[in-house]
Deep mutational scan, measured.
Amino acid sequence: PQECLLLEPGLNEIMANSLDYNERLWAWESWRSEVGKQLRPLYEEYVVLKNEMARANHYEDYGDYWRGDYEVNGVDGYDYSRGQLIEDVEHTFEEIKPLYEHLHAYVRAKLMNAYPSYISPIGCLPAHLLGDMWGRFWTNLYSLTVPFGQKPNIDVTDAMVDQAWDAQRIFKEAEKFFVSVGLPNMTQGFWENSMLTDPGNVQKAVCHPTAWDLGKGDFRILMCTKVTMDDFLTAHHEMGHIQYDMAYAAQPFLLRNGANEGFHEAVGEIMSLSAATPKHLKSIGLLSPDFQEDNETEINFLLKQALTIVGTLPFTYMLEKWRWMVFKGEIPKDQWMKKWWEMKREIVGVVEPVPHDETYCDPASLFHVSNDYSFIRYYTRTLYQFQFQEALCQAAKHEGPLHKCDISNSTEAGQKLFNMLRLGKSEPWTLALENVVGAKNMNVRPLLNYFEPLFTWLKDQNKNSFVGWSTDWSPYADQSIKVRISLKSALGDKAYEWNDNEMYLFRSSVAY
């Protein structure tokens, strides 16, 4: 590609939709070469300064400071330590791993069909083939991996386009969902002041979706909304933040926050679980009234959910574990990228498509890292959202599997949720969690119950496949010279610098 592309739109479109291996590689590498390399010296300084700040406030390091958001002291029976968070994340991840490994094996087999000769049947997945710029969410792999393609499509993007949905309609439908469970409408100022579409040439905007509580009843969302099912669900997520903000607005200023950061992320995700169900999509006209649910549509639905929800958990866990180790000084600065990709291979089963030396800073190419967000919130929120969903479905008197529950129109479920939201940070999160779900610790069981039918199906699908991955295989081993030459021509001086062995191999191949 010759034109100058922004991340959004532009590069993200390539990473969402392109099936051209080399075009995807160009976009993936260009973003890291342009952005990651510029941020490397800044990120090194950032780590030093943030650690100084944390230690001045009596924390061991900046990662310890972040984990302090979960700490509860002096509340008998509800205490929770920063170290306990690490333990809980690690042991819940071990419980999730078998499901993830089977999802990984299934996706690898489907990617082998889409990119023959580029995928190893026992290796890691190349990082640039996973549906977005970071491989964070695998949602866009659904069209390549759908188990029963002859069934009606449960990705309702086409239906939204056919019905001329726009950003306003998407957010109005999200608002209807919250109102149906007894939560309030958005304010008039929300509709007047939010930026729900890309302003285009009028001004440059950071398009990463964010929710804003500017105080004095001024709530806004910034999002360059596209007419897709993914953005339909994202709208519910962002509006969930606003509902939380509005619910605790009466609290004293210092207590106007989520019980912990994971709670804030979980609220909209609960609504997304219901909004994505075929039952709900039928009720708002995005699935045909004669759409029939059966075992095959159930597996299609659960796989689509797993690509988004299960596929991202190792990504989140590994990223934050790397940062915690960096802040603690356990990874020397001259080994940041080496350790990043070692951990990516070992924990996530994902491999870099071309080698990256220590001039890169791949983590900082992600919005949340370069903008100083702690990231473990996206792991804890996933466990909380299924715990909350299970409890709210019980309040809504849902009968049947958890993945079929739609809590819309249940004011009982809405009241149970609101009673927790309005507390803000005035009560320990362990107590707030217990008030809703009857337990005071994160628990992976509801998530595993939700995906149980899919897990059973995946194990059957993978019975003749290798489950797990070898960390030795690299996608650039066989194609390295071709890849390096093409990237050198595209990126010039910003391309990865060849070492002596690679230059010798190149000259030998040319001479041959």
Rank of each mutant, 00 (worst) to 15 (best):
H368E: 11
T187Q: 13
E265K: 12
H368N: 08
M229I: 10
T187A: 15
Q305W: 04
K304L: 09
H264A: 08
R256C: 09
G215Y: 14
D372F: 01
A250R: 09
R377E: 13
Y373G: 10
W212S: 02
E261H: 05
H241Q: 13
I309D: 07
Q188H: 13
R136W: 07
Q251W: 03
I309C: 12
F219L: 04
E265V: 11
R220F: 00
E265G: 10
K216F: 02
L214G: 04
M246T: 14
R256I: 02
R377N: 09
V206K: 06
K304I: 07
K216Q: 02
K304R: 12
M229F: 10
A250F: 09
T308V: 08
V206H: 07
L214E: 00
D218C: 00
F219Q: 04
Y378D: 12
F301Q: 08
N257D: 12
E192S: 06
D230L: 10
G217K: 00
K304E: 09
G217N: 01
L214D: 00
Y373P: 05
N257V: 10
R256Y: 01
T308I: 07
M246E: 11
E269V: 08
A249N: 05
G217A: 01
K304P: 02
F301I: 10
R220V: 00
H368D: 09
T187P: 15
P252D: 15
E265S: 10
F301R: 09
V206Q: 11
Y373M: 12
G217T: 01
A249F: 01
G189Y: 01
N140C: 05
Q305E: 11
E192L: 09
D213C: 05
R136D: 02
G215R: 14
F137A: 09
P209D: 05
S272D: 08
Q251T: 07
H208C: 06
T308R: 12
Q251D: 00
N257I: 13
F301K: 09
K216P: 01
R136C: 07
N257L: 10
R377I: 06
A249S: 06
Y378T: 12
F375S: 08
W212G: 03
G215Q: 09
G217Y: 02
R136P: 03
R136N: 10
T234V: 10
N257Y: 14
Q188C: 06
P252S: 10
G215E: 03
F137D: 10
H264V: 07
W212I: 02
N257C: 12
M246L: 05
H241P: 01
Q305D: 10
E265A: 12
T139H: 07
W212H: 04
G215A: 13
V206S: 07
N140P: 09
F219A: 01
F375C: 07
D372A: 06
E269R: 08
D218S: 00
E265D: 07
H208R: 08
R136G: 08
M229A: 11
T234W: 07
P252G: 06
H237Q: 13
S272G: 13
N140L: 11
F253I: 04
D372T: 06
P252H: 07
N257E: 13
F219V: 04
F301S: 10
F137N: 08
M229Y: 11
V206E: 04
Q251G: 04
E265W: 09
N140Q: 10
N193H: 15
T139C: 08
N140A: 11
D213S: 06
E192H: 03
F137L: 12
L233C: 08
T210W: 07
G217C: 02
T139I: 13
D213F: 13
E261M: 09
F219D: 02
A250Q: 12
A250N: 13
K304G: 10
S272A: 14
E265T: 07
P252Q: 06
E192N: 04
N193S: 05
H368W: 06
S272V: 10
E261I: 06
R136S: 07
I309P: 01
S272M: 09
D245C: 09
N153Y: 12
Q305K: 10
R136E: 11
G217L: 01
N153I: 09
A249L: 15
S374L: 05
Q305Y: 04
V206F: 05
F367Q: 12
K304V: 09
R377Y: 06
H208M: 11
V206D: 08
E265H: 10
P252L: 03
F301A: 08
R381Q: 08
E269D: 10
F137H: 06
K216S: 00
G217R: 00
F375V: 08
T308W: 08
H208A: 09
H368C: 08
H241R: 14
S374W: 05
R220A: 00
P209I: 03
K304M: 12
K216G: 00
E261C: 11
N193Q: 15
F219N: 05
D218V: 01
Y378M: 13
P252V: 03
Y373L: 13
N153S: 11
E261G: 10
V206C: 08
D245E: 12
R381C: 06
Y373V: 11
E192P: 06
F367R: 07
S272E: 09
Q251I: 03
I309A: 13
F375N: 10
E265P: 09
F367V: 07
E261W: 08
V206R: 07
T234I: 13
K304T: 11
D218M: 01
W212V: 05
D218F: 00
N153C: 12
F367I: 07
T308S: 10
S374H: 08
S374Y: 08
S272H: 07
D213W: 02
T139S: 08
Q251F: 01
R256L: 07
D372P: 02
E192Y: 04
D213A: 06
R377D: 11
G215H: 09
V206T: 05
F137S: 08
F253V: 03
D245G: 07
N140H: 13
T308G: 12
I309Y: 11
F137K: 12
L214N: 03
D218H: 00
N153W: 09
H264Y: 12
F301N: 13
R256H: 12
T187F: 04
K216R: 03
D372R: 04
M229C: 10
R136H: 08
Q305F: 04
F219S: 03
N193I: 04
H208S: 09
I309R: 06
